[in-house]
Write a protein that binds this DNA or RNA. Structure first.
Lengths: 332, 332
DNA sequence: TATTGTTTATGAATCGTTTCAATTGAGGGA
DNA sequence: TCCCTCAATTGAAACGATTCATAAACAATA
């Protein structure tokens, strides 16, 4: 079916070793031999069998990236960063969607081990990390994305989520809001827990009341669900802080259907600052994270670990979130 | 580093062949041997090396999916469909982003060949198909997504783009618009060409004037760019039809910044009906395509071709687009 | 007892590369 | 002419699995 190196060697009347050298160490091959073999390779349309190659050499040029939700623009933005950084260094990226499910995550980790990826970038769905250790034991480098695990010897790129939560509440209380709803997913998601901790901390300092509305997934339909819950309250909060923009867009959609004016009656603050936040019905104020930059940084860290294993030093890089003020939030 | 089958064999005091049988044909192994070997496999944390496995057996359980833009929710929706269908049949998916660039596409095709994927789902950036033929010659099944190539022996899942273009113009002229702007990317993108053909056809029938504004990429910033061009016209069109929703959202954003009222002054119609269309500043009317369903269907076709190569018959499945009416379009 | 069949286990060959020790041959110096 | 170097090339071993022809052990039948 496929042309093998052996066939190329025969056609070029050289040994397999020479063809291999043409591919991997062209400098040791005589120029004219090089040219001749190159031509035959092109003529025959030979593409080396990656499996065989890496079975022998022991390492591939592929990375895995496991995200909890590909449909979330925040993560596609991270993915773009990872991909750009990786392809610059001639690596390809396996993009996997864990869908916030630990079992899907496990399944993909297994696939990636089988595919013998060189390294894995992951936003783990929960704290248990034996799966990650299993990869490391196999010599697969692991870098955490949008997540930091303290006291661990590994690289990570994260954003200060506690600070992000604080930032949001400080901003809202600064606008005069003292009755705030915090819409978020389950606490098992570390980002949610951290942002929630920041929210609680800042609320305590400011003396504001914060009601937590917890939904199962962090997407738009669940945001609509949350909004319906809020609409059923005896007294509506004057501001809603959502743990990500998809939730916020869902909340906004449902509130607007109920003719609630934003921000006059309710302020809405999102998190992530995805591209669509600015195009929303009411342009969404949000806590911004440098998604693309995080992807690039994480990939660079990971590749550094892969390629300079001995001199590599684990780093925890932490970005700071920023408030982006738009029309969905106002004074109370 | 990693535990090999040979080590398992030694620990279990059986031959490598037996361990292999435990993995692949457990029914031929005596129950107690099976149990013993299984336990050792678990104890040692053995995961078979996928490369070696497939080097020998000749086929992997991975697919490739090449999309022109991962940041476009239409394609992430397709990707979700592909992934769900694939994981149901225990395949993993390599998601690749060609970024609308033929060279990146080529590079990824090469990577996928190297990784020896079983099949590839692709939305090719342009018509030249020798790369696709190259894959087929290597025994890699190829299915076209959101794209149909007539007179070719291959599977495809597409939407009737000519009809979609017509549908949009018929709807707009039906609302009384006779001066319409058609905002689109380069004609080298087949979807653009087809939708444009439908637009031209319907405009001719209805006797409407259509001005084409062409941009280089089909994303939000380019939509803003297009809107600036339109704002510089002597006479503004009364309706703008965009070749996808990202363009439409960009157009909408810029027009609103210029205090143009939508749909009173200008109607805007998008294409794809991505999830955010409904949450837009003015909820966006759009031509809807069954993205998730397309992904599922495409993956099923491809896997059918992979697994039943001899009985497989190529199919061209074509979905019909539908108009979704929201607030961004109105009578003229 | 001899023959045949059935079940289970074996281990060498194989897939397509890379690697590396060994070989070849050309050129230079004595 | 002989010896030495050095660059270029060779070819066999190895990577870790699967496959398959064969063997071993035992039971059933003639």
């Amino acid at each position: 079916m496929s042309v093998s190196l052996r066939e190329v060697a025969k056609a070029a009347k050289v040994s397999v070793g020479t063809v291999s050298n043409v591919l991997n160490r062209p400098e040791v091959v005589a120029p004219e031999t090089l040219a001749r073999v190159q031509r035959i390779i092109d003529d025959l349309g030979f593409v080396p069998n990656g499996f065989a190659r890496q079975l022998r050499s022991g390492n591939s040029r592929t990375l895995g990236l496991i995200v909890p939700d590909v449909a979330n623009p925040f993560f596609t933005e991270v993915a773009r960063g990872v991909e750009d950084a990786a392809s610059k260094r001639d690596y390809a990226v396996f993009l996997c969607n864990s869908d916030e499910s630990a079992s899907k995550e496990d399944r993909y980790i297994n696939v990636l081990i089988q595919q013998q990826v060189r390294g894995v970038l992951i936003t783990p769905t929960d704290v248990k990390s034996d799966r990650l250790d299993a990869m490391r034991e196999r010599g697969i480098a692991v870098t955490l994305v949008d997540r930091e695990l303290k006291g661990r010897q590994q690289c990570s790129v994260s954003v200060d989520d506690v600070h992000g939560g604080q930032l949001g509440i400080e901003y809202l209380t600064g606008l005069g809001h003292s009755d705030i709803a915090w819409v978020c997913g389950p606490d098992s998601i570390p980002q949610v827990a951290d942002r929630g901790a920041g929210v609680a901390k800042a609320a305590k300092i400011a003396g504001a009341k914060v009601e937590t509305i917890r939904v199962s997934l962090m997407n738009t339909p669940q945001g609509e669900e949350a909004a319906r819950k809020i609409l059923s309250f005896k007294t509506m909060p004057s501001a809603i802080f959502c743990a990500n923009d998809l939730l916020a867009l869902g909340v906004m959609r449902t509130l607007r259907e109920s003719k609630i004016r934003i921000p006059e009656q309710v302020s809405i603050l999102g998190y992530d600052d995805i591209e669509f936040a600015a195009s929303a019905a009411v342009p969404l104020s949000s806590i911004s994270q440098p998604a693309y930059q995080m992807g690039v940084t994480a990939a660079d860290l990971l590749l550094n670990e892969c390629e300079e294993r001995d001199t590599h030093e684990h780093q925890q890089i932490r970005f700071q979130p920023q408030l982006v003020e738009r029309a969905s939030t106002g004074k109370h």
